[in-house]
Amino acid sequence: MESVVVDGVRLGYERAGSGPAVVLVGGTGMPPVAWQLCGLRDTLAGAGFEVVTYAARGVAPSDAPAAPYTVDDLAADLAGLLEALGLTETVVVGYSLGSFTAELLARTRPDLVRAAVLMAGAGPLTGVLDAVLAAETELIATTGRLSPAFMRLQTLLSTLPPGVLCTDDAQVRTWLELLGAQEAVWTSAEGENGQSAASDRWLRDEHRMAALAQIAAPVLVLAFEYDLYFPPGSGRVAAAALPAGHFAQISGAAHGGLLTHSGETTKAILAFLAHVDLDEADRSAGESLG
């Protein structure tokens, strides 16, 4: 993995394929290899795109400055990375926390974003997510960090759809084992606390939904049917608020649909990219692609 220093923060990144640039922006604690595991990176590279993946600040092997972070910090890091690589008018695909980064970059640096995909991360703050954020903030304030056991439980319950959680104990235990290695993705506890603080501040910003109207680029809001944090109803609200918003839903998936329903997710993203390329003159706000 190569690296570049952006405003004093070293960011690790990789490039694959050739063609129009697509940058994949991971969620909380998400290492770049996850984009390979779900198949999206290689599929896009094989479809004629240059794909950039990177570790956001706080995630190994990138640096972890002192917490807290903000989404402004994360978007500035991404802007600096793209500038260092000489990339403009990219397609930015963000997942969860990465969706916040992609959304802000599209709004503040339109020269860098030709189109965006906001996956499992667009829409108003729900009651469920409000409760999760409050619990995370309290844990960090009282213990100094989010306990590994808490993070495993939270990620497990949000990642898998209810049918799997209730009926497929073997799969649940497999995921528990995978999540047991999650701590290794963090550069340090500062990175974990920093990213958590960035999410909390972003989601509690009362002006962020109105700011969607400032994004001129075409944006796909991609929601998962059983996402506890960003359910389809929230995604539709976000898509309707975007001047060139589109909406697609992945049936049967929860917040972790990127991994559990990777084929369907990849298909929806490719369909959006084909629409942007082939039907650029005929975009309408709130249009549904599936």
Rank of each mutant, 00 (worst) to 15 (best):
D205H: 13
E177K: 14
A211H: 12
T260F: 13
Y226F: 15
R208L: 10
A254S: 11
Q171H: 12
I250G: 11
A223P: 02
P243V: 04
L176W: 10
L222I: 06
P218E: 11
P161K: 12
L258A: 07
D227Y: 09
A240K: 15
Q214G: 01
I250V: 15
T174R: 14
G194Q: 04
R201V: 14
G180S: 09
Q171L: 14
S199W: 01
T155S: 14
L165N: 03
G194Y: 01
I215H: 11
Y226M: 01
W186Q: 02
Q214R: 15
A213V: 06
V219G: 04
S196R: 02
A248V: 06
L222P: 05
T260C: 11
T159M: 12
W186R: 09
R236D: 02
M209T: 01
N193M: 09
F230N: 01
L258Y: 05
A189G: 12
R173K: 07
I215W: 09
T260V: 10
Q171T: 14
A213P: 02
A216T: 09
P243T: 08
L156N: 05
F230E: 00
F230D: 02
P148D: 09
T167H: 15
L228D: 06
E206D: 12
L156S: 08
E192R: 15
A254E: 00
L212Q: 05
N193Y: 03
A211I: 03
L228A: 08
H207F: 03
G191C: 13
V185S: 12
A210V: 06
G163I: 03
A184Q: 08
D205Q: 10
G256D: 04
W186M: 05
Q182P: 00
H261A: 10
D227K: 14
L228F: 11
A197Y: 02
G233Q: 10
